[in-house]
C-alpha cells in the first residue's frame, strides 16, 4: 500500500491551483470586459462606417468597410496638422516639465531643509489632486482678457501692455496647464531615487570636498539613468493619450485645430456630438493608432524594466 501511494506521489500531475484562479477571477473578468474586448472592438469599429445615422450597439449589424476610414485619415489635410501638433505638444511638455522640470524640482527639494522640501513637493502634488474642471477654471481666469484676467492685471500693474494670452499665446498655456500637473509624477520617482542613493556615497563625495553642483553632476545624475528612462517612457504614453485638460481648456481651439491633439480628435469624432454627427468608425481609426502605439510602448517598457521581477518565484508551493 505504501508503494502505491508513493508511486502516486511521484507521478501526481500538478493540479491547477483553483485558489489562485479564484483570487484572480474578478480582476480577470473586468480586464476582459474593459480592456481585451474593447481593444478588439475598437479595431473592428474602425473598419465600419458606424455613425450617428446608422448607430447600433450590436456588433453584428455594423457595416464592414475595410480600411476605408484609414484611407480617409491619411488623406485628411487636418490629420497632418493634428499629428504635428501632438508631436510638438508631447515633445515640449515632456522635456520641459514631465521629465526636465520634475528632475529640477526633485533636485531642488532634495537640497534644502527636509521639511521644506517635503512641503514644496506636496504643493506640487496639488494640481494632480484637483478635479480638472476646477483646475481649468483657474487657468481660464488666469489668461482671460482685461479686466478679468489675472495675468493681464499683473502685467498692467507692472507697466506692460495687455497681452491676448488666450488667443495668441494659447499653446504656451496648454503646455503649462498640462506640464504643471505632469511634474509631480517624475518628481516623486526622482526624489525616491535620490533618497535611495547610499549615504556612504554622498558622504564620501562630501569628504572629497565636492560642491552641490559637482555632486549632482557626478554622483546623482549617473545613478538616475533608470528612473529617467522610466519616467520618460511612462509619461510619453500618458501625454500622448490624455486629453482631458485640453478638452476642457481650449477644446482644440481657438483657431481651426490650433491646439487639437490626436487623442482629442478621436474623442471629437466619436464621442462629442458637437456637430450632431458622431463618426464612430472614423474616430476609432484615430483611436486605433493610439492603441497600437500604447501596446507597442507598453511591451517595450515591460522588456526594458520589469522582466527580472517576473522571474522571482513564490516561496510556498501548492500541495
Amino acid at each position: 500500500m505504501n508503494m502505491n501511494t508513493s508511486a502516486r506521489a511521484r507521478t501526481a500531475p500538478t493540479r491547477p491551483n483553483l485558489t489562485a484562479y479564484a483570487f484572480l477571477a474578478p480582476v480577470a473578468i473586468l480586464v476582459v470586459l474593459f480592456f481585451i474586448i474593447p481593444a478588439l472592438l475598437v479595431i473592428y469599429i474602425s473598419m465600419t462606417d458606424l455613425a450617428t445615422a446608422n448607430f447600433t450597439s450590436d456588433v453584428g449589424q455594423m457595416t464592414f468597410i475595410g480600411l476605408k476610414n484609414y484611407e480617409t485619415l491619411f488623406s485628411d489635410p487636418y490629420a497632418r496638422k493634428i499629428f504635428f501638433n501632438t508631436v510638438f505638444y508631447v515633445l515640449v511638455t515632456l522635456s520641459l516639465f514631465n521629465v526636465g522640470g520634475a528632475l529640477v524640482v526633485a533636485l531642488l527639494t532634495a537640497h534644502i531643509n527636509r521639511r521644506a522640501g517635503f512641503f514644496f513637493r506636496a504643493l506640487w502634488l496639488l494640481p494632480r489632486l484637483m478635479t480638472s474642471t476646477v483646475y481649468i477654471l483657474m487657468w481660464e481666469r488666469m489668461v482671460a482678457d482685461p479686466p478679468y484676467g489675472i495675468l493681464n492685471q499683473l502685467f498692467g500693474v507692472a507697466g506692460y501692455g495687455t497681452v491676448a494670452f488666450n488667443t495668441n499665446h494659447i499653446w504656451t498655456f496648454v503646455i503649462l496647464v498640462n506640464g504643471i500637473i505632469g511634474i509631480s509624477f517624475g518628481m516623486i520617482i526622482f526624489t525616491s531615487a535620490i533618497e535611495s542613493i547610499s549615504k556612504d556615497i554622498m558622504n564620501a563625495s562630501l569628504v572629497d570636498g565636492s560642491t552641490a553642483m559637482q555632486r549632482i553632476r557626478y554622483v546623482i545624475l549617473p545613478l538616475m539613468r533608470w528612473p529617467l528612462l522610466f519616467v520618460l517612457s511612462y509619461q510619453t504614453l500618458s501625454l500622448l493619450t490624455s486629453y482631458e485638460e485640453i478638452l476642457l481648456f481650449t477644446n482644440g481651439g481657438p483657431g481651426v485645430y490650433q491646439t487639437e491633439v490626436w487623442a482629442l480628435t478621436a474623442f471629437h469624432r466619436a464621442l462629442s456630438n458637437y456637430f450632431g454627427n458622431a463618426q464612430w468608425g472614423y474616430g476609432s481609426a484615430f483611436a486605433v493608432v493610439l492603441v497600437i502605439v500604447g501596446i507597442v510602448l507598453a511591451i517595450l517598457y515591460l522588456r526594458i524594466f520589469r522582466f527580472r521581477e517576473l522571474v522571482s518565484e513564490p516561496k510556498i508551493e501548492n500541495l
Binding site: 480592456f35 475598437v42 504614453l237 487623442a263 478621436a266 493610439l290 501596446i295 507598453a298 515591460l302
Partner: peptide, 14 residues
C-alpha cells in the same frame, strides 16, 4: 504590467 502602462483612455469609444 502591460496593462499597467497601457493608456486605457484610448478605449473609451468601444
Amino acid at each position: 504590467l502591460i496593462l499597467h502602462s497601457f493608456p486605457a483612455v484610448t478605449l473609451l469609444i468601444p
